[in-house]
Computed example of a mutant assay.
Amino acid sequence: MSNAMTVVKDAYAAFGQGDVHALLALIPADIDWRVVGPASLPYPTTCRTRGEVQRYFADLFSAEEITKFEPREFIDAGEHIVVIGFVAATIKATGKSFESEWVHIFTIKDGLVTRWLEFFDTAARP
């Protein structure tokens, strides 16, 4: 397993344990962190600093209860790792649930996540 893949799997392990601080330790002070989707999402869609990523997670967890999160396929392309997965969540404000497959694209440099992009079916989120 490449060092980049180890970093990505460590990030998912931290997320799965709800350990946002361990996940934040895997990113540099400046980052390119984006959810590709509409600006109407109740959490930031572009983050440039570790503090903004921390706010992203706080806003995400206040808006949604994630009931299933499954990274399913890992594609190793050197410093770029692509992960295909699945999420099920409930929107806290409405109680409505949704499911979506997703794709995460990571860039790892010097053992840190320098870029993270998420694509998911935003139309599935009511």
Results as ranks from 00 to 15, higher is better:
Val53Phe: 00
Gln54Lys: 12
Trp102Gly: 00
Gln17Leu: 06
Pro71Ile: 05
Ser62Thr: 15
Leu117Val: 13
Asp19Trp: 03
Asp110His: 13
Ile81Ala: 07
Ile84Met: 11
Glu118Leu: 09
Val8Asp: 05
Arg115Ile: 00
Pro71Gly: 01
Ile84Tyr: 12
Thr6Lys: 15
Val83Thr: 07
Ala4Arg: 03
Arg55Met: 11
Thr107Lys: 13
Thr107Pro: 04
Ala123Gly: 13
Asp32Ile: 04
Arg48Asn: 10
Asn3Met: 12
Ala4Gln: 00
Tyr56Met: 07
Ala29Trp: 08
Arg72Ser: 14
Phe106Ser: 02
His21Asn: 15
Gly16Phe: 00
Gly78Lys: 07
Phe106Met: 03
Ala11Asn: 04
Asp32Pro: 03
Pro126Phe: 07
Ala4Leu: 00
Leu60Gln: 10
Leu23Ser: 06
Asp32Thr: 10
Pro126His: 11
Lys96Thr: 03
Ile105Val: 13
Thr107His: 13
Glu101Asp: 14
Glu64Phe: 15
Asp19Met: 01
Glu101His: 11
Arg72Ile: 11
Lys96Met: 09
Thr46Gly: 10
Phe57Lys: 08
Val103Ile: 11
Phe86Val: 04
Arg125Gln: 14
Val8Tyr: 05
Thr94Gln: 01
Lys9Pro: 04
Asp10Gln: 12
Ala25Val: 01
Tyr43Trp: 08
Ala123Ser: 13
His104Trp: 08
Val103Lys: 06
Val8Met: 05
Ile31Ala: 01
Phe119Asn: 10
Val113Gln: 00
Thr67Asp: 09
Val7Ser: 02
Arg48Ala: 08
Thr114Tyr: 04
Asp110Val: 00
Ile27His: 00
Gly85Trp: 01
